[in-house]
Write a protein that binds this DNA or RNA. Structure first.
Lengths: 107, 107
DNA sequence: CAGATCCATAACCAAATGGCTATGGTTTCG
DNA sequence: CGAAACCATAGCCATTTGGTTATGGATCTG
């Protein structure tokens, strides 16, 4: 629970990982090759970031032949949304919409 | 903007800093001395964490004699809430599109 | 005034982090 | 079949990070 929020916060702390997540959320499923091209770093570096994003459940993957397609799993943002709701009501309204979406998306 | 979100994500990536923030949000203003006692680490370590939380505007402080009182500033969470909502609207669009498709497919 | 308390900063250190190249296992293609 | 492409893992390295002790300035207190 708190451990899950920790994984998500740690995963999002790096701007390169946020950029990867943003790209997947914006443009949909992408191969490691495509992600590497956009990130401007080496393919192994991208793979390592993907491991960390997987640990936080922020991405899913699907093997197809020799390529792996990754996709964003925005439901994984729920733990940190919950965390924020715990400690303040200031931004409650701002997050209400998000909470609803996350609940609806939860399988 | 993005730089601000980066500071906030980085500040919250460490569990000790989250615990400090949680304590301030839950129990209100506290001195460095009190925070040190709760954190179970040295006073300089706490001061360094407070510097990082200050950089992210997650805490404010007030000098009173020889002690400094810190308080949580939950409004500073807004940048990451906005960041999340950026993708929530994207999801919403996708959901809307999906709903449209489903309706049109419905006999 | 003299000492004690509160806090910030500096200097240092081990561990974690984020990058790289090298390598190897699958899978596709000529 | 042999070569090329895709990706994950391993090993290496520089930098960052989170902790420590040492120190000093400012403020209370006896």
């Amino acid at each position: 629970m708190t451990a899950e929020a920790d994984n998500v916060f740690k995963a999002l702390a790096d701007p390169t990982r946020r950029a990867i997540f943003e790209g997947l959320a914006r443009d949909g499923e992408q191969t490691v090759h495509a992600l590497t091209h956009h990130a401007g770093i080496s393919q192994p570096a991208v793979s390592k970031h993907l491991v960390i994003l997987k640990r936080a459940h922020l991405v899913g993957h699907r093997r197809q032949g020799r390529e792996t397609h990754y996709r964003a799993r925005p439901q994984a943002l729920a733990p940190i949304a919950d965390w924020m709701n715990l400690y303040s009501t200031f931004w409650q309204n701002r997050l209400d919409h998000l909470e609803d979406l996350l609940k609806r998306m939860d399988p």
